[in-house]
Simulated assay, not measured.
Amino acid sequence: MNSKLLYLPLLFALSLPAAHAAENAPGSLHDTVAALDHDMFDSFNHCSDPAQLARHASYFDPAVEFYHDTGGVTWTREAMLANTRKNACGNYTRQLLPGTLQVFPIKDFGAIARGQHRFCDLKGEHCDGVADFVIIWRLREGQWQATRVLSYAHRANTEPTN
């Protein structure tokens, strides 16, 4: 199979207008993915605690592909966690920018989450960086896991932080 064809669904999802996002009704797919995003990054934000880093790991498929425009690509959960441990834990936290999370269903698989997040320096207590993200979530046997993650368009934060 042509490897370029494998990425067509992702490219299509990146071009979907917000109107096609899952509804925000209680119990909706949007609520499920928003809760996953919150919980996954709550553990990320406390990952200097080994138990929280292990909790964070549980949100990712062992074969997760993580694409970071400035950090490169990792092909496994272990490699991704090694980068997280080295570069993020104890240094900064991630915050979802309010109103940016969009969720799109993937038939018989899971969902695509797209949004923007900012990164806040724990030492200086300011949020200097903003980036876009896409997370492909898979629902298998009642458990959601991220299988692909894209974090890109990293740039300076020009919005005031609270």
Rank of each mutant, 00 (worst) to 15 (best):
M1V: 13
N2G: 11
L6G: 14
L8K: 15
P9F: 08
S15I: 03
P17N: 12
H20P: 05
A21D: 04
E23D: 15
P26G: 07
P26S: 06
G27H: 00
S28A: 01
L29T: 01
L29R: 08
D31F: 01
V33Q: 01
V33W: 00
H38Y: 11
D39G: 06
D39L: 09
F41K: 00
D42I: 00
D42H: 05
S43W: 03
S43P: 00
F44S: 04
N45M: 00
C47P: 00
D49V: 03
D49T: 03
A51I: 02
A51N: 02
A51C: 02
Q52N: 00
A54F: 01
H56Q: 06
A57P: 04
S58W: 01
S58A: 09
D61M: 09
P62D: 13
A63P: 03
A63K: 08
A63C: 07
A63I: 02
V64T: 05
H68T: 08
T70M: 09
G71T: 08
G72N: 01
V73Q: 06
W75M: 12
W75G: 11
T76S: 12
R77E: 04
A79R: 11
A79I: 08
M80L: 12
L81N: 07
A82C: 09
N83H: 13
T84I: 15
T84E: 10
R85V: 02
K86Y: 12
K86A: 15
N87W: 06
N87I: 07
C89E: 01
N91W: 05
T93Y: 02
T93A: 06
Q95Y: 09
L96D: 09
L97H: 08
L97W: 11
P98R: 03
G99R: 06
G99Q: 04
F104Q: 07
P105G: 05
P105Q: 06
P105N: 06
I106F: 07
D108S: 12
G110D: 06
G110N: 09
A111W: 13
A111C: 11
A113I: 11
R114A: 14
G115M: 13
G115L: 12
Q116G: 10
H117R: 13
R118T: 11
R118F: 11
F119I: 10
C120T: 10
D121I: 06
K123L: 09
K123N: 10
G124Y: 11
H126R: 10
C127Y: 00
V130G: 00
F133Q: 01
V134K: 14
V134H: 13
I135V: 08
I135C: 05
L139F: 07
R140D: 15
R140C: 12
R140A: 15
E141A: 10
W144G: 08
A146G: 11
A146W: 08
A146P: 08
A146K: 06
R148E: 05
V149G: 06
L150I: 08
L150W: 10
A153E: 15
R155H: 14
R155K: 12
N157L: 15
T158N: 09
E159A: 12
P160L: 12
P160Q: 09
T161K: 07
N162L: 14
N162V: 15
